[in-house]
Amino acid sequence: MRAILTSLTLLIGLVPMAWADTVTHAMGETEVPDTPQRVVVLTNEGTEAVLAMGVTPVGAANSWLGDPWYPHITGTMDGVEPLGRESAINLELLAALEPDLILGNKQRHEEIYEQLTAIAPTVLSERLRGDWRVNLEIYAAALDRQDEGAALLAEYDAEVAALSDALGGSLQEEVSVIRFLAGNIRIYQLDSFSGVILSDLGFARPANQNVPEFALRVGRESIPDMDGDRIVHFTYDNGNGEGDAAAAEALSDPLWQGLSAVQAGRVHGVDDAIWNTAGGVIAARLMLEDIAEIYGIE
């Protein structure tokens, strides 16, 4: 492995590159090439960002759901080499792609940052929760596509404003966001992907979710704490059926059946990838579409 990295580093040193700028990121400052041609992305939200800015990466971290990509991006990932999950990147395969820029995340890749920088200039965003816009702006700077990034955010803001106006008084509903997993249930709060988007729209949230934290991890005994005027829920299942089984047990639990939102028929099952796991600009805009559909807005 070390020989591969060393050889590739020497090769990169012999190839003339036009250096565009120095990008400040979670690990410091990095000189990046002008209009990089072979980009590798090591997070799911980063993959969505580069795709939306018109860049097809040569390699990317596998989607958490899908084989190897989420259904909503599969059609745009032809020829992209899957490199393993975000937390288990195959460095040898990555090096063989001979990238000229690597985009990753400190939360996932701080421990392998030195190895990544031996392969190519590497830019890491800070965190993976909450406001996805911050990371998109970092990636846009690294790709020298600030205009494209700004345009994407402007389009998102316009869609949020239009949907918010159309929702009107419905924004007063306290929307509860619940995720079922094999080992626990999560009650999502404001510092989450869905939490940020609901806040952008102006939705009210139940008191235990209207706090600047990520999520409460609870068991079925805490189902009474999941109520709201409306409940949105999704399930993470890694293919072994355990997540789906846990969701089925929770949804049939008498405590769940007794929730006011359930009694009123204001409960909606949605896609885990869109509302949580993908975490990028493409999913954000698809989540807005889901909300419009839930509320019957064209």
Results as ranks from 00 to 15, higher is better:
residue 4 I to F: 15
residue 8 L to V: 10
residue 10 L to Q: 14
residue 10 L to W: 14
residue 11 L to G: 03
residue 17 M to P: 00
residue 18 A to G: 10
residue 26 A to I: 02
residue 36 P to N: 01
residue 36 P to S: 03
residue 38 R to K: 08
residue 38 R to D: 05
residue 39 V to F: 06
residue 42 L to N: 01
residue 46 G to D: 14
residue 47 T to F: 03
residue 48 E to G: 00
residue 48 E to D: 04
residue 52 A to H: 00
residue 54 G to N: 01
residue 55 V to N: 00
residue 60 A to D: 00
residue 60 A to G: 04
residue 71 P to A: 11
residue 78 D to I: 10
residue 82 P to G: 04
residue 82 P to S: 03
residue 91 L to M: 11
residue 92 E to H: 05
residue 93 L to R: 15
residue 94 L to Y: 02
residue 98 E to K: 13
residue 108 R to L: 03
residue 108 R to P: 01
residue 109 H to I: 07
residue 111 E to D: 08
residue 111 E to Q: 13
residue 119 I to T: 12
residue 127 R to C: 06
residue 130 G to H: 10
residue 130 G to V: 07
residue 133 R to Q: 14
residue 135 N to A: 05
residue 139 Y to T: 08
residue 143 L to Y: 04
residue 144 D to N: 13
residue 145 R to V: 02
residue 147 D to C: 06
residue 150 A to I: 01
residue 154 A to K: 11
residue 155 E to W: 08
residue 164 S to K: 00
residue 171 L to R: 11
residue 171 L to S: 09
residue 172 Q to G: 12
residue 174 E to K: 13
residue 178 I to D: 05
residue 182 A to D: 01
residue 183 G to Y: 06
residue 183 G to K: 14
residue 187 I to D: 11
residue 187 I to N: 13
residue 189 Q to M: 14
residue 190 L to K: 15
residue 190 L to C: 14
residue 198 L to W: 01
residue 204 A to W: 06
residue 204 A to C: 08
residue 204 A to R: 14
residue 211 V to E: 09
residue 216 L to S: 15
residue 222 S to F: 07
residue 222 S to Q: 08
residue 229 D to P: 05
residue 229 D to C: 00
residue 237 D to P: 08
residue 241 G to P: 01
residue 245 A to P: 05
residue 249 E to Y: 11
residue 252 S to C: 09
residue 253 D to C: 14
residue 255 L to F: 13
residue 256 W to N: 04
residue 260 S to T: 15
residue 260 S to Q: 12
residue 262 V to L: 01
residue 262 V to E: 03
residue 266 R to I: 12
residue 268 H to N: 10
residue 272 D to G: 02
residue 272 D to F: 00
residue 275 W to V: 11
residue 280 G to S: 05
residue 282 I to S: 02
residue 282 I to E: 03
residue 282 I to N: 03
residue 290 D to Q: 06
residue 294 I to H: 05
